[in-house]
């Protein structure tokens, strides 16, 4: 007699917990050829608001960690992800319809990207900050600081590598994140949230929402306690992106417009620096 599988319930990740949507709704996730994979939670506006509250709550602690510590935590994520390589390769394969080999390559690239970003944690301040030679007797220095709570629409196509590539730079710089996963390919994101939960990332630092963007994205765009909005996942919907950007203007969110990204190439500093504020401090020099 064949064993009956224990199927996995794909839930949201909010504030270190894995709730189903408070709305009780879910939606059907299919593989690349239309076969049923699982029901994913359909996050509501309320779920999105709860996620923002969790991200804000986590922000003071996470941003106050030493850069060294944040680097260690992100590196730990890479370690744990490496350990889940097989599971994620399978999920990516199903989600994206790629070959096994390509999918494994994508997971490997995601692990390598985390390692790359982990190393930036305690170096970026020296690259983008510094002292300013003002023409007066003051010691004047500029340091980068995290912007705050970031709403992210993860890329729709690249379910894991794309997700990691938009979340890691935000987190390693000390921001906290509410990410709306790829709508049609959300399952690797949920598993990635489980990886985060088992790798020293404090609850609330990364909150993962699955479901239609029509509910979550406007909530993130209009929420006054969200400081930045990454519209990468709205690439295929220019009108929607424009509306979200206009909404984000209400509290002057930093907005990243959707653009075609190549997740295989060196990402550069840009995905970290747009989520950094420069703080400049002046102090007199005297006896």
């Amino acid at each position: 007699m064949t064993r009956i599988d224990v199927r996995k319930t794909y839930k949201l990740a909010i504030g270190g917990a894995f709730p189903r949507s408070e709305s009780g709704r879910s939606y059907e996730v299919t593989d690349a050829s239309g076969g049923f994979l699982a029901n994913a939670a359909h996050a509501s506006r309320k779920d999105a608001r709860d996620a923002v509250v969790a991200a804000r709550k986590a922000f003071p602690g996470w941003s106050a960690r030493t850069a060294y510590n944040r680097g260690q935590v992100v590196y730990r994520v890479a370690e744990v992800l490496e350990g889940r390589r097989a599971q994620l390769a399978e999920e990516v394969q199903r989600a994206e319809g790629a070959t096994r080999r390509v999918s494994e390559g994508l997971v490997d690239a995601a692990v390598d990207r985390l390692v790359w970003y982990a190393g930036w944690a305690d170096k970026l301040a020296q690259v983008v900050g510094g002292t300013n030679p003002v023409a007066a007797p003051y010691f004047d220095f500029s340091v980068p600081e995290p912007t705050g709570v970031v709403g992210v629409l993860a890329p729709q196509e690249s379910s894991l590598l794309g997700l990691v590539s938009v979340v890691a730079p935000a987190v390693v710089t000390g921001n906290t994140v509410v990410v709306a996963a790829s709508v049609r390919r959300p399952l690797p994101a949920v598993t990635f949230a489980e990886v985060l939960a088992t790798s020293d990332v404090p609850g609330g630092v990364v909150n993962v929402l699955t479901g239609l963007l029509t509910d979550t994205a406007p909530t993130l765009a209009s929420h006054l306690d969200v400081n930045a909005l990454d519209l990468t996942g709205a690439l295929g919907d220019p009108d929607g992106a424009t509306a979200l950007e206009a909404d984000a203007a209400e509290n002057l969110k930093r907005v990243r417009r959707p653009a075609q990204d190549d997740w295989a190439t060196d990402p550069g500093l840009d995905r970290m620096t747009w989520l950094l504020e420069t703080k400049t401090v002046w102090h007199p020099i005297g006896t």
Partner: peptide, 27 residues
Amino acid sequence: RAGVVWANTFNKLDPTSPFGGYKESGY
């Protein structure tokens, strides 16, 4: 949470010194 912090001074500006805001003070 402010883009410029003046310690034991105030309203000092210099071309070499980055100036700008957090939150609704702009970007």
